Simulated assay, not measured.
Amino acid sequence: MKVIVVSDTHMPKKGKKFPNRFISELANADLIIHAGDWQTIEVYEELSRYGKVAGVYGNVDNQDIIVVTEEKKLIELEGFTIGVVHGHGEKKTTEKRALDAFTEEEVDCIIFGHSHIPLLRYFKKTLLFNPGSLTDKRKLPYFSFGILYIEKDIRAEHVFFQ
């Protein structure tokens, strides 16, 4: 199973269309997960043209996104539980807020966004994955998104591009 993971698209403010590198991966995705800050419903609608979309809302999303998503989401895939949350809030780091969002659940992976900083690491036995931003790299050298491969285990990778 191939899952495309994206966050912080901030469209149309930070980008008018999906980058070609991203579109090429969408063609054979089994699922698309968005970790918030879509900004408009048009991003959700455009992603839906490529396949099934699941996601959460972020701190800049408008009401149209809020009504079709959740603040946090649990997704079951191939026997694994994936938690998705944007990660915004006060105090603590984005990573810590993402971890705190799932203290009551057993999750194999937590996907989050908000910081625009790509992250891939384990906390104990939980894979933490922030895909970075597709359209707003801030001071980082590359834009990015992520791919989860789910088979006997969960493997994640970032795709970096100019």
Results as ranks from 00 to 15, higher is better:
20 N>G: 12
87 G>D: 10
114 H>A: 07
74 L>F: 00
60 V>H: 06
144 S>N: 10
15 G>W: 09
3 V>C: 06
74 L>H: 03
11 M>T: 00
15 G>A: 15
129 F>Q: 01
7 S>A: 15
15 G>M: 11
144 S>G: 08
6 V>E: 00
127 L>M: 13
29 A>T: 07
112 F>V: 01
54 A>F: 13
41 I>F: 14
20 N>L: 10
2 K>R: 14
76 E>D: 15
38 W>N: 11
108 D>R: 01
21 R>L: 11
150 I>E: 02
23 I>R: 02
40 T>H: 01
83 G>E: 08
61 D>H: 06
160 F>T: 08
146 G>K: 02
67 V>H: 10
44 Y>W: 15
156 A>G: 08
39 Q>H: 13
158 H>D: 07
105 E>Y: 06
34 H>G: 12
157 E>F: 03
144 S>E: 09
84 V>E: 07
42 E>W: 09
63 Q>H: 11
94 T>L: 03
1 M>P: 14
136 D>N: 14
66 I>Q: 08
85 V>L: 05
158 H>F: 03
108 D>A: 00
103 T>H: 07
34 H>V: 09
70 E>T: 14
101 A>D: 08
67 V>G: 07
33 I>S: 05
35 A>C: 15
33 I>V: 15
93 T>Y: 10
22 F>Q: 00
128 L>T: 07
72 K>R: 15
161 F>E: 11
92 K>P: 08
50 Y>P: 09
157 E>A: 05
112 F>W: 01
16 K>F: 11
65 I>Y: 12
64 D>E: 14
83 G>W: 03
77 L>G: 04
9 T>Q: 06
67 V>S: 13
116 H>N: 13
113 G>K: 04
149 Y>C: 07
8 D>W: 05
152 K>T: 14
8 D>G: 06
97 R>D: 08
61 D>S: 07
158 H>G: 02
84 V>R: 01
100 D>F: 04
33 I>T: 09
162 Q>M: 12
36 G>Q: 13
161 F>V: 07
71 E>D: 13
26 L>A: 05
132 G>R: 02
106 E>C: 00
160 F>K: 08
114 H>C: 08
112 F>M: 04
135 T>Y: 07
80 F>T: 00
116 H>D: 12
14 K>T: 11
6 V>N: 00
3 V>R: 00
103 T>G: 01
144 S>W: 11
131 P>N: 06
115 S>M: 01
73 K>E: 12
52 K>I: 11
92 K>Q: 13
81 T>V: 15
148 L>A: 02
79 G>S: 02
106 E>N: 09
92 K>I: 10
54 A>E: 15
156 A>N: 01
111 I>D: 04
96 K>E: 15
24 S>E: 14
158 H>K: 02
10 H>R: 03
52 K>Y: 10
83 G>N: 07
57 Y>H: 15
31 L>M: 13
73 K>T: 13
